[in-house]
Nucleic acid binder design. Structure first.
Length: 622
RNA sequence: GGCGGCGUAGCUCAGCUGGUUAGAGCACCGGAAUCAUAAUCCGGGUGUCCGGGGUUCGAGUCCCUGCGCCGCUACCA
């Protein structure tokens, strides 16, 4: 039997579950349900990442033990998955004993293979990111709480596996998907790959898994977290299970964690001499309309609110139908309502109403017994059979949105068939034929329900219940005639757009741009006037100039990328504006203590200069 | 700046290795029908396939170039 092992990332226990978590998990659920329907032996894993500094800090703040903190946070995810009808086979938490054991086993193995060494390391450490960062990253401004730390640590010889990894990616086209992500990783691997620091001294962080070969250290969270994918399928505990499911068919991830999954993880596995996963699939992000979802913008879509208002299945349907896997997608209430009303209410739900009502009206509430053998009836049957085939091919190639559209086209063709055959007319002149038409329409509807069941497990069950076809499968001809219909509610009540504008107009709450800062934050920036004393080109760089400036008597060196716009000569003597308290950085091997302000558009750039007659250097600018 | 991608109907997008009058869904307009959740069905597009060159018997599809947007990255700051 074919096996299908699919994972989501393990989510960080401190996070509040949002639409992104929900999306990935629903996607995994949908894919695995499809594969189950195909009769494959499926294993679907999700879980939580519970170690690391932020968890430790959050626990300290609340004055509880880290593990207790995790135990209290975990249900937020578990309950949401429950509400979303996620049918996972396992839920792993990295604090579980089974996982700790495996991580230590892998660490020991990698150590024994000679791929871990000790080194003194001095570098910039980002507390918020819990990792050492390069100077360039520090300069990027994307990291907070940066400290210079010098300490002994253990390193994983990731660099050794650079070429084998490149070869593997090239030899296995499906290894990183979609293709543009693969190209990104290959681009990343063009530069020399560094080794990976995989330890944290307990003096700094003790909420983690202890290194088996040095009890003064715990392991780096990513090294710990990635291993969950093999823990859960029985590595080192259940050999037959492990051999059955590993390597995973897909690790489903968001595009933000591509490097960890496509570089760290495969090289770790290479060192541990384990097979690599067959596929790593990075999907895009949900945007709120045009813009990124962010807490400060207040436009983060809450999945709970949506499902309470409209039900789980429509939300699952929308998320699956609207996103092209691998690209970003835009979430708007408008498109949600459109999808809901046109696809679910008008096409699918209404078809059930027409068919069941006609059966009630003309056939005593029973399903007729014979299939329509007219040309039109046979055409529907053939289209149904074709749909199964096409849809499955689309699912296998991760084109979920297309697979859904394929099924809906079939549903639409059944509405058309009804119109053509008009069984409500036939019932009066030729009841037998009318019965056949209704039977075929009902069978088509049953098949559509089975096809859509992975996406909408609940509402499709209503359809199957109505026709007493709960146990039928993915083949034409599952419907049994002669049975009484069960009553059903309106499958997808239409959403009234007028009511909507009053009740749910949530998404964009504030018109504030994404990048607002507070006054205090502005106050942190120390802008000062400065006189340019000297200027010269940086050796070997086209765009950089080294400036010596005077800021109220203090002499400073600043590197600036304006060489294409200003010659050194014309800068000397100018009064400019600099950010005086910028963290020093080394650019192109030269130290820079501050930055200057300039206005630019496209290729034009102009320095902000001050009339030096009126203002001395070193003045604060507010 | 480098590498890569994208730019097709009002909107969201399909169009594989170049080949008949360029497609789908939604929206919009007109009509039919009345079994159904004011649902369904039929009909309706003068779209510079981003602009400009080129290769070819033939290009949305290949090549060059310009513009715009996006991703990764850099001597961005």
């Amino acid at each position: 039997m074919n096996t299908f092992y699919l994972t989501t990332p393990i989510y960080y226990v401190n996070d509040k579950p949002h639409i992104g978590h929900a999306y990935t998990t629903i996607l995994a659920d949908v894919l695995t349900r499809f594969h189950r329907n195909e009769g494959e032996d499926v294993f679907f894993l999700t879980g939580l990442d519970e170690h690391g500094q932020k968890v430790q800090q959050a626990a300290e703040k609340r004055n509880v033990a880290p593990k207790d903190h995790c135990d209290e946070m975990a249900p937020r995810f578990i309950e949401l998955w429950d509400k979303l009808h996620i049918k996972n086979d396992d839920f792993i938490r990295t604090t579980e004993k089974r996982h700790v054991t495996v991580v230590q086993k892998i660490l020991q193995e990698v150590f024994d293979n000679g791929d871990i060494y000790e080194d003194e390391y001095e570098g910039l450490y980002s507390v918020s990111e819990e990792r050492f960062i390069t100077e360039k990253e520090a300069e990027s401004g994307e990291f907070r709480d940066i400290k210079k730390i010098k300490e002994k640590n253990y390193f994983f010889k990731m660099s050794q596996y650079q070429q084998p990894l490149i070869d593997h990616i090239n030899n296995n086209p499906g290894f990183i998907q979609p293709e543009h992500r693969k190209n990104e990783v290959l681009g990343f691997l063009k530069k020399p790959l560094g080794d990976l620091c995989i330890s944290r001294p307990k003096s700094r962080l003790n909420w983690g898994i202890e290194l088996p070969f040095d009890s003064d250290y715990v392991t780096y969270v990513w090294f710990d977290a990635l291993i969950n994918y093999i823990t859960a399928v029985g590595f080192d505990s259940d050999e037959s299970k492990f051999n059955n499911y590993w390597p995973a068919n897909y690790h489903l991830i968001g595009k933000d964690i591509l490097t960890t999954h496509s570089v760290y993880w495969p090289t770790m596995l290479m060192s541990a001499k384990l097979p690599l996963p067959q596929g790593i699939f990075a999907h895009g992000w949900w945007l709120s309309g045009e813009s990124k979802m962010s807490k400060s913008l207040g436009n983060v879509v809450d999945p709970l609110g949506l499902i309470e208002e409209y039900g789980v299945d429509p939300v699952r349907y929308y998320l699956m139908r609207e996103m092209v896997l691998g690209q970003d997608a835009s979430f708007t209430m408008e498109s949600f309502v459109k999808r809901y009303n046109s696809d679910l209410a008008n096409d699918f739900g209404n078809l059930l109403s027409r068919v069941s009502n006609l059966m009630k009206k003309f056939f005593d509430g029973k399903i007729p017994t014979e299939e329509d053998d007219s040309d039109e009836g046979i055409a529907i049957k053939e289209k149904g059979i074709k749909t199964i085939e096409i849809m499955w091919a689309q699912i296998e190639s991760m084109r979920v949105n297309e697979a859904i559209e394929t099924t809906l086209q079939f549903v639409r063709s059944v509405n058309k068939y009804m119109e053509t055959m008009a069984p409500w007319k036939l019932a009066k002149s030729d009841p037998e034929s009318a019965g056949k038409v209704l039977f075929t329409a009902a069978e088509a509807l049953r098949l559509s329900a089975v096809l859509l069941a992975p996406v909408m497990p609940n509402r499709t069950k209503v359809v199957l219940d109505t026709f007493n076809a709960e146990e039928t499968g993915l083949e034409w001809g599952g419907l049994k005639g002669g049975v009484a219909l069960k009553p059903h509610d309106v499958l997808f009540p239409r959403i009234d757009i007028k009511k909507l504008s009053q009740s749910v107009e949530p998404v964009q709450k504030k018109a504030e741009p994404d990048n607002v800062i507070t006054f205090d934050e502005f106050q942190n920036v120390e802008l000062k006037t400065a006189m340019v004393l000297e200027a010269e080109k940086v050796d070997g760089a086209d765009k950089l100039l080294t400036l010596q400036v005077d800021i109220g008597g203090e002499k400073r060196q600043i590197i600036s990328g304006i060489a294409l716009h200003y010659t050194p000569e014309e800068l000397v003597g100018k009064m400019i504006v600099v950010v005086a308290n910028l963290k020093p950085a080394t650019i192109f091997g030269v130290e820079s203590h501050g930055m200057l302000l300039a206005a630019s558009k496209g290729k034009n750039l102009t320095l902000i200069t001050i009339d030096s007659d009126k203002v001395a250097s070193g003045m604060r600018i507010h």
